[in-house]
Every structure is written in C-alpha cells, then in structure tokens.
Amino acid sequence: MEKDPNDPRGLIRESFRIDGITAEECRTIFLDWVLTMPAEADIKTVVRALLATYADANDSHPMTATLQDALAQVNPARRRGGRRARFEN
C-alpha cells in the first residue's frame, strides 16, 4: 500500500478500520497525528483532504466528526477577570 502524504503513519486510515472506536479515542488519535505533522503543514488543508478521502464512505464514523470539528472556527482565548483577580493571592 502506498503511503498517503497527508497521513504518513496511517493513523487516520487505521482509525476508520477500528470497529467500535469511540469519539474520545478518535480525538486521541487525531492529536497524535497532528503532533507528528511537519510544522510547516497547513493542517486545515490536510484535514480537508482527509475528509475528501474518507468522509463519504464513513459519514457517521466518530473520526469523521473529529476531522470536521478540527475545521470549526475557534475563538481565541481571552483572559478573564480584572485587576483584582490578577493580584489576589
């Protein structure tokens, strides 16, 4: 089998083959996959390519949902609390 440049270790491909895999397990596999991607990789573009490869045949699979969640817009984190919260201790 030829290596997929978007999934060089085959983690995503194999996750779709695991019967009864949970959403939590898919998120763990996805995290492992994303941490091994090159720093210069455009993760959203790669995730779109993976969805194009696997999603049609596996639309109800938890990894499909995990990949779709990776494309969702996330609001940047904000510091909460005022001056008083920063200086209490």
Rank of each mutant, 00 (worst) to 15 (best):
A52W: 11
V74A: 03
Y54T: 01
R78H: 08
E14P: 03
C26N: 03
E24Q: 15
L67F: 01
R84V: 09
N58M: 07
S60T: 12
T66P: 06
C26F: 02
E40D: 14
V34T: 13
A41T: 05
G20L: 03
N89W: 12
R83M: 15
K3C: 15
E40W: 11
I21P: 04
F30P: 03
A72F: 15
T22Y: 10
G82P: 01
R48Q: 12
M37A: 05
W33M: 01
E88C: 13
A85K: 14
V74T: 14
A85P: 09
F87N: 12
R78F: 05
I43L: 06
L71E: 12
Q73R: 05
W33P: 01
V46G: 06
D59Q: 02
D32I: 14
L35G: 05
P5S: 06
I12P: 00
V34L: 10
A52P: 04
C26V: 00
S15K: 00
A65Y: 08
F30L: 06
E14K: 07
D19C: 10
E25K: 02
G81Q: 14
P76Q: 02
R13I: 04
A85M: 10
T66W: 01
T22M: 09
R48M: 10
R9W: 02
R48W: 00
E14N: 08
D32T: 14
M63E: 04
F87C: 15
L11I: 15
A39P: 05
F30G: 01
V34I: 13
T45G: 07
R80L: 15
G82Q: 15
I21D: 03
E24L: 12
A41M: 05
A72E: 06
R17W: 14
E24F: 02
N75A: 12
W33V: 00
T53N: 07
R86M: 11
T53M: 03
I18E: 01
M37Y: 06
R13A: 13
